[in-house]
């Protein structure tokens, strides 16, 4: 059980305005390499929701998350991304932290975030973001020299930089020490309590005080 989340990231990311948004999956089916992964999955996420996705390795958690980001297409069924009741393209709604960190080894942490800030057309303070994820000390280190856990923290910073309402995270706590795990849970809690929502694939599913939390478990048939 977690305490009420502190408003740690509000200052850094400028906060996500309370945006009425919804992400809906209807009877989604997906196959990979000719073998069907899952079928008939329906899920509805609105502002203030947290969904933890669990299941064994290789069962399709990552594939399901990628469907929600709009990067892949389902074989059948439909996904809707909506802001204020109106359909919108997925990139208006979601930001994604996948298995890959997507940082160039020859760019420093600050340069990387500045690049993404320019692409996202966002004016948040990079220094404050780095402070939030605990990377101020390593700000001018090339990403190739950052550890796996530090790169994960940097991708968290990018997540907050995007200021999108829905966070889709694939095993965010992998390669993180316990301090990092706490940080992640705090940031997620803060984000959701400010009106965002989060869908996280993770083996842990801590309950967060006062937040509507659900768990979707993918289990192998047979």
């Amino acid at each position: 059980m977690m305490n009420a989340p502190t408003d740690l990231s509000a200052h850094a990311s400028g906060g996500v305005k309370r945006l009425d948004h919804a992400l809906t999956l209807e009877r989604i089916a997906l196959s990979r390499g000719g073998h069907p992964l899952f079928a008939g999955i329906s899920l509805s996420i609105v502002a203030g929701d947290i969904v933890w996705i669990g299941g064994d390795n290789g069962i399709g958690k990552s594939s399901l998350l990628r469907l929600m980001t709009g990067l892949s297409r389902a074989d059948s069924g439909g996904i809707c991304w909506r802001i204020a009741g109106a359909d919108c393209p997925p990139h208006d709604l979601i930001c994604y932290q996948g298995h890959q960190d997507a940082f160039k080894p020859n760019l420093t942490a600050v340069e990387s975030l500045e690049f993404w800030a320019k692409i996202l057309e966002c004016t948040a303070s990079i220094d404050a973001l780095l402070k939030t994820v605990g990377l101020s000390v390593r700000a001018n280190v090339p990403c190739g020299q950052l550890s796996a856990g530090q790169k994960r923290r940097l991708s968290l910073a990018r997540l907050m930089l995007s200021q999108k309402p829905v966070w889709i995270m694939d095993e965010p706590t992998a390669a993180m020490d316990s301090e990092g795990v706490n940080l992640i849970h705090e940031l997620i809690g803060g984000h959701v309590s400010r009106g965002g929502s989060a869908i996280i694939a993770s083996h842990q599913a801590p309950r967060m005080n006062g937040l509507r939390t659900r768990q979707l478990i993918l289990k192998a048939t047979s």
């Binding site: 992964l37 899952f38 289990k219």
Partner: peptide, 8 residues
């Protein structure tokens, strides 16, 4: 399909 989903 290989997996089913349960939501709780």
């Amino acid at each position: 399909p290989a997996a089913t989903a349960t939501i709780t």
